[in-house]
Amino acid sequence: MADDSDLLLEVNDLKMYFPIQKGLLRRTTGYVKAVDGVSLSIKKGETLGLVGESGCGKTTTGRCIVRVYQPTEGEIVFHDEGEAVNLNLLARQELKAFRRNMQMIFQDPFSSLNPRMTVLELVGEPLLAHGIARGQELEDRVAEMVNAVGLKVEHLPRYPHSFSGGQRQRIGIARALVQRPKLVVCDEPVSALDVSVQSQVVNLLQDLQSELDLTYLFVAHDMSVVRQVSNRIAVMYVGKLVEVAESEELLRNPKHPYSETLLSAVPRPNPHHAMQRLSLEGEPADPANAPPGCAFHPRCRYMEDICQNEVPELTELTPGRHVACHFADQLQLQGIDYSASIQS
């Protein structure tokens, strides 16, 4: 991987298995392998987009990184001012203090805010919890943060019920950023919002990133939004990464058949766009019962015998581009054709 000095986060072989329990005795009959061996690294100040369809494990990956879940296996190493901190080795109290560095923005602007707390209480809570500020200082810092996300000081005594979805998402962003984290996991931060509000929030996240020197893991299913915010994109399918690449490179020239179909499926707001869609048969595999070999093989148009038996490893094809496909270097896949759209 890239040289260590500008790395912020390294995830090595992360696994998160949820047991399936059945019967009176809660015997474990199997596991939902939500995340099954994910390795990735995020550089300081960059945005890594994590895309995939529902159930592919992208949200679980994000939640493991901020330690909402205790992962089943794997290492999460945080590079904090020249020091490598292995989150698995932190004691409870140390982890609690370390949480300042990693925050999360949630998808649902309704359920992620306690309806019984005012904006001041919501945004101020992390400061209180870490003993960063109290009293007037707390109020000042909250006011400053609330201004930064585009809300006003007079909003502080209000309760969440008086805000629209977009405004609530701003409150959620203020809560996540008020303690000046280094890494923010954005879990589908705009997908529950109205179209006209989505772009506002995307812009806000980008502005705040440069102002506050933030690093994002941007988890989403919408390829166009992910591409807008990300420097690099990681594509996930049934618990595993299938491709990681610099974002424009991935769009123009996908190397994994799943990335190809995912790009092709994005509906284009352009009625002249010729229907050259690759039709993708079937549905995503069940992470409790993934097919052997490459999990994508039942839906893959380029499937060969080897795909049914051997799991392809995520390997570096060219510098900075990792693909998990047996035929990554042979396939000629179709990406986004920019020449056509620029003419029209």
Binding site: S164, V195, Q200, V225
Partner: peptide, 26 residues
Amino acid sequence: GLLNSIPHIDEAKLARLRAIEGVVPD
């Protein structure tokens, strides 16, 4: 505004999206 505000995957990437201001009124 709607057409401008959404990210277009098959066009060159903009540094910033051209968002519509404000919110849908109550």
